[in-house]
Design a protein around this nucleic acid. Structure first.
Length: 501
RNA sequence: GACCUGGUAGCUCAGCUGGUAGAGCAACGCCCUUUUAAGGCGUGGGUCCUGGGUUCGAGCCCCAGCCAGGUCACCA
């Protein structure tokens, strides 16, 4: 597996060798004690102050003018210019400047600078180097975008394939990419602290499961050698969290990586993150209030306001959000009241609305299709859609008043579902019947129908208190909160096809 | 999965109607002690995504494939 090295890589390896010959370790082990950052230097420097600093980072540009040079160092917070004068970093022996800095260092190398902050004649806050330390030699040339005085970027590294496949490089040369990921972590921190303040317990449940459940999706299959059993990667954590509610935890939540063996798109990655929450003695109406409050708080924590820009739209998470029943939403967007229609009439109506129908579709599926085609994309401001057909929701409790519906809601925002919740079905006899209906679907070839989980049924036969449960898509919410149009922009390492070569 | 677009130097890209493979930056060499995307002068660098085909001749045309992006479908 020998790779042909490019000219520039060969040169860098030769420089590496020469550094070693000069007795300089290109990969030293000792601590390099940094005492500030680029950002702090620029923010805090006052003229005429004798400020000694030690910084470290990547060498990102070099302007050599004989015996003096300017370079830019990029650390975790930004860049600062360094002034390197031959006679300031060298005593008698000028090797450190003439050979090491000018010849053997390359853009991308990680160096440490000890020096004094000053302002150049042109007025740029810089560090005058007194000591230069090689911390890591870089063996590959970085793609190197440059920004000119008009703010125009030249040679920017934008090829999405290369960016996603080589995120390390992307982060080095496009530091603004970091911002979305920092926001994403702030989002989960904000959510976690909200839930903790409410007294709910963060837990962990299995990713490797003998039976998958809790959602309608095709799973990834794997194999445990020692036990010689097939296992599945979880598609949801619902059934395990409910077992914990049976066991006496009244409020549990989990941030979970879930895995679905389905198509990919800018909204779908095979592994994605959800937060699921289950609270005993509550119902779905109560949960709507919680979702509103929590997401509003997240928007404020991240942006200092409830208004968030997402593409063309400005989304306002301020409470209260609009609430429509599914029938109301359909009537609102199509002008047709389908609530009293039978299956035949509804099928006709769907066809008229341009929805593709086939004979296998029951009433519930038709409603869902009409909603998906005619309403979901129109809902830009956060909106709750309430009361779903029972056929689509085998784990939700039947509606306390409305025949054929369940107590379920989704939160829709920017035309996409971000949250799904219901009053959890805790009647074990009904739950068994619903699983059996799902099994009928499996027999008819539905690859996404749920499996009957006997162990879960046994748990709720002991009695699960009335419970409200909710799942919220962290990737989708992150996309909205960071104004990203693709899920790949909020995942460090989105799934890509392996390169064949 | 379908359709559209793209894949050329380390990076960003040009390459006409099929006729010797190009530019800027980066690299390398020399000069230069406060510069600002790019100081000056000079030099080297290519599996034109892969495999077939047409042709005297293919980066360009044709076929098949790989990878990516977009749109749609699928995915509550």
């Amino acid at each position: 597996m020998k790779r042909e090295l490019s000219e520039q890589e060969i040169i860098r390896r030769e420089s590496l060798q020469k550094l070693k010959e000069l007795g300089i370790d290109p990969y030293p082990s000792a601590i390099f004690e940094v005492n500030t950052t680029s950002k702090k230097i620029i923010a805090n420097y006052k003229d005429n102050e004798e400020l000694e600093v030690v910084i470290a980072g990547r060498l990102m540009s070099r302007r050599i003018m004989g015996k003096a040079s300017f370079a830019e160092i990029q650390d975790s917070e930004g860049r600062v210019q360094v002034y390197i004068n031959r006679d300031e970093i060298c005593e008698e022996d000028k090797t450190m400047y003439n050979t090491v800095f000018k010849k053997l260092l390359d853009i991308g190398d990680i160096i440490g600078i000890k020096g004094v902050v000053f302002t150049t004649q042109v007025g740029e806050i810089s560090v005058k180097a007194k000591e230069l330390t090689v911390l890591t030699k870089s063996l590959r040339p970085l793609p190197l975008p440059k920004i000119d005085t008009d703010g125009v970027t030249h040679d920017s590294f934008t090829d999405p394939e290369k960016r996603y496949r080589q995120r390390s490089v992307d982060l080095v040369v496009n530091p603004e990419v970091k911002d979305a990921f920092i926001k994403r972590t702030q989002l989960t921190n904000s959510m976690r602290s909200y839930l903790n303040e409410k007294g709910y317990l963060e837990v962990e449940t299995p990713i490797l499961q003998p039976l998958y459940g809790g959602a309608a999706a095709r799973p990834f299959k794997t194999h445990h050698n020692a036990l010689d059993v097939e296992l599945y990667l979880r598609i949801a954590n619902e059934l395990y969290l409910k077992r914990l509610v049976v066991g006496g935890f009244d409020g549990v939540y989990e941030f979970s990586k879930d895995f679905r063996n389905e198509g990919m798109s800018r909204f779908h990655n095979p592994e994605f993150t959800q937060m699921e929450l289950y609270v005993a003695y509550k119902d779905y109406i109560w949960m709507m209030d919680l979702v509103e409050e929590m997401v509003e708080k997240i928007a404020i924590d991240l942006h200092g306001t409830t208004e968030v820009k997402a593409g063309e739209n400005t989304i306002n998470f301020k409470r209260p959000w609009k609430r429509y029943t599914m029938y109301e939403a359909i009537e609102h967007f199509t002008g047709i009241d389908i609530s009293k229609m039978d299956e035949a009439k509804m099928s006709q109506t769907a066809k008229k609305l341009g929805v593709e129908v086939d004979k296998s579709m029951g009433r519930g599926k038709l409603i869902d299709e009409i909603f998906g085609k005619k309403c979901e994309g129109e809902l830009i401001q956060p909106t709750f859609i309430i009361d779903y057909p029972v056929e689509m929701s085998p784990l939700a409790k039947k509606h306390r008043e409305k025949e054929g519906l369940v107590e379920r809601f989704e939160a829709i925002c920017n035309g996409k579902e971000i949250c799904n919740a219901f009053s959890e079905l805790n009647d074990p006899i009904d739950q068994r019947a619903r699983f059996e209906e799902q099994l009928e679907l499996v027999k008819r070839g539905d690859e996404e129908a749920m499996l009957l989980d006997e162990d879960f049924l046994r748990a709720i036969e002991y009695g699960m208190p009335p419970t409200s449960g909710m799942g919220i898509g962290i990737d989708r919410l992150s996309m909205i909160m960071t104004n990203s149009s693709s899920i790949q922009d909020v995942l460090f390492f989105p799934q890509m096809k392996p390169k064949k070569d």
